[in-house]
Design a protein around this nucleic acid. Structure first.
Lengths: 231, 231
DNA sequence: GCCGATCCTAATGTATACAAAACGCCGGCG
DNA sequence: CGCCGGCGTTTTGTATACATTAGGATCGGC
């Protein structure tokens, strides 16, 4: 239950969804007034939303403070995955020595759910379970700053595209890696947990990169993505 | 030349300085109107400043959106240093294979300046050179996201307090570690660079922790620090 | 024909007024 | 005596109007 239905939160969610859904193509300019009209709020909450989206690297601002939808090059994405591998690996290491029996049980349950989703070919179910799994690990790491950093980094659109392009075998591999992680946690082996997690993320990157090479740029309307001016 | 003397930037800098300087004690409530009056601007830029300070972990917001000066426990600081060690270590590894001869030369120059400052007992000079050195390494890593993360983490007040309490020998040790880093860069040895940097940061943490134990809490006016309500 | 300066337009930055919500207080009740 | 609920004050959230500045187009000069 969202306690506060703030306009700023609504605007944030809406704009984020527009970007994730591709309605706002990478490089497209974001005018505050236009977005305000789109969200049915004034510019003030839109400004807050844009600042938050900038934190998430979904929006880029030029020196003149104009906003554009961020366009991620494959290099950018590689960098992002590398950072995630390091950070989530670290989180897993911390979690290995801090996780409670309840947390461990939750992970087992979530991974079972993930397995069912894979078996049923349910991509949304997979994404939900996968996200919950990673969030649980992050919570067990008990490091708010680490969680915030990873949260800002996890480009939901990218994760989604990766999963959508995963084959059944690759999805199954995720399940197996999660199982290994659970085993490492059960034994309190921080080094193992870190290695498994880092490898898990890096494999996801290569799956994404392979898929990208097969089907590079895509825009809902088929038009060429707009380019933003100077960095 | 600051290109844009924006009120929001001014407010950010001013409030940040007030927190760093201790005029605003940890846990103290931050009312937007009061800060606006203090900075001679309206609430709008203050709001932006507070959001940025929250990113820097200098300000905490309750669920009710009220703002307080963040109070860092020693555990929090330990966590921060651990993250810094990991991130800056990673940055050093990247820099080792990317740094240009000019960058290397700049590091040598900066570390020489740092040595002079140490010899002269010039703490401010040390801080400036030290910061420039680390920024240069960060730049050479060519990872904007990594730079942003570390930037948000480097608690200037903490770094300052650490340096102020450093003895001459410890300051000299920083110089020596920087030299080792330069050597690792010159040889393009990413693993070495990472190890040196991580150790460098972790040593700084222990220096800080030792100093903190010797002289724990201090408030300019000597009053007990205010406590903020629920987390 | 190309480059540059200047003006114009359009977007953002700031200030203020109003609305809504949260916190704390006070009184009443168990 | 302690706890719970309602009410007033205070603080933040939102909307809007105005100021300022960046970007782009146009016109003139070379």
């Amino acid at each position: 239950m969202a306690r506060a239905p703030r306009a700023a939160d609504a605007a944030y969610a809406r704009i984020r969804a527009l970007i994730a859904g591709g309605e706002l193509a990478p490089g497209a300019p974001l005018r505050e007034e236009e977005l305000a009209a789109l969200c049915g709020v004034s510019r003030t909450p839109v400004r807050e939303a844009l600042m938050r989206l900038e934190q998430d690297y979904l929006v880029r601002r030029t020196d003149g403070q104009r906003s554009y939808v961020a366009d991620w090059s494959l290099d950018d994405i590689a960098e992002m995955f590398a950072l995630r591998a390091m950070l989530e690996g670290h989180a897993a290491a911390r979690a290995a020595t801090r996780i409670t029996p309840e947390g461990l049980e939750a992970l087992r349950r979530l991974n079972a759910r993930l397995a069912s989703a894979v078996a049923a070919g349910d991509t949304e179910g997979f994404l939900a379970a996968n996200r919950a799994f990673h969030d649980t690990v992050l919570g067990a790491a008990q490091s708010p700053r680490l969680a915030a950093m990873i949260g800002g980094l996890v480009e939901q659109p990218v994760v989604r595209r990766t999963a959508v392009r995963y084959g059944a075998r690759e999805l199954g591999q995720s399940h197996a890696e999660h199982e290994a992680l659970i085993e490492a946690f059960a034994r309190g082996d921080a080094g193992w947990a870190e290695s498994v997690m880092a490898g898990h993320i890096r494999r996801a990157f290569h799956a994404f990169a392979d898929a990208s090479r097969a089907a590079p740029a895509r825009s809902p309307d088929g038009s060429a993505p707009a380019r933003a001016p100077r960095s």
